[in-house]
């Protein structure tokens, strides 16, 4: 096991535990904060794997913007803060389905890949190369995504307007 691997395992464990806490926390704000931890660890994993651009984008967007959005949402909807049952009655089915999916995926993975063979080499993925890839080969999807963001922006504004009936 190399040192990267060790680092990776540690980060993975942190992320997983945080994720579990996200879905089991009784306090919605704590759930949001645990989400921060999870997202940050995922960003760190990206950096470890050598995708620096994506990693920093992850930190920026997810941790920086999306979590803030969630916190605003929780605040505006007066999410109950405090010890209260936040899980619904179909928890058992949810757990069952989740475990089924996990089992399935694990089975697939270990069926497809040998344990020792494919090793992810660390490689530098420079921002320049990514930029080149985006604006040369994937410029149309990029434009499409920008449209989506525009639509989402306008939509969010329209949806959140107060009714102006007298």
């Amino acid at each position: 096991m190399s040192s990267q691997e060790y680092a990776f395992v540690v980060l993975a464990l942190v992320g997983t535990v945080s994720a579990v806490r996200v879905v089991t926390a009784r306090n919605v704000v704590r759930a949001a904060l645990y989400l921060v931890a999870t997202l940050a660890s995922v960003g760190a994993v990206y950096l470890l794997l050598g995708s620096e651009f994506v990693g920093w984008v992850q930190i920026l967007i997810y941790v920086g913007a999306i979590v803030i959005l969630f916190l605003f949402g929780l605040m505006l909807t007066k999410a109950p803060i405090g010890r209260e049952a936040l899980d619904n009655r179909s928890r058992a089915i949810g757990a069952l389905v989740g475990l089924a999916i996990l089992a399935g995926l694990v089975f697939l993975i270990q069926n497809a890949f040998a344990w020792n063979d494919p090793k992810v080499e660390l490689a530098q993925a420079t921002s320049g190369a990514i930029g080149e890839a985006i604006f040369r080969h994937y410029v149309l999807p990029f434009e499409a995504v920008s449209f989506v963001l525009l639509a989402a922006l306008i939509g969010a504004v329209v949806l959140s307007r107060k009714d102006e009936r007298p």
């Binding site: 179909s90 949810g94 389905v97 999916i101």
Partner: peptide
């Protein structure tokens, strides 16, 4: 009328199909 229940059925179906 419970969306999460629908989602549960959906995911269960996906698992079964995958199997």
């Amino acid at each position: 009328g419970n969306v999460q229940r629908y989602a549960a059925f959906l995911f269960a179906g996906v698992v079964i199909l995958a199997v």
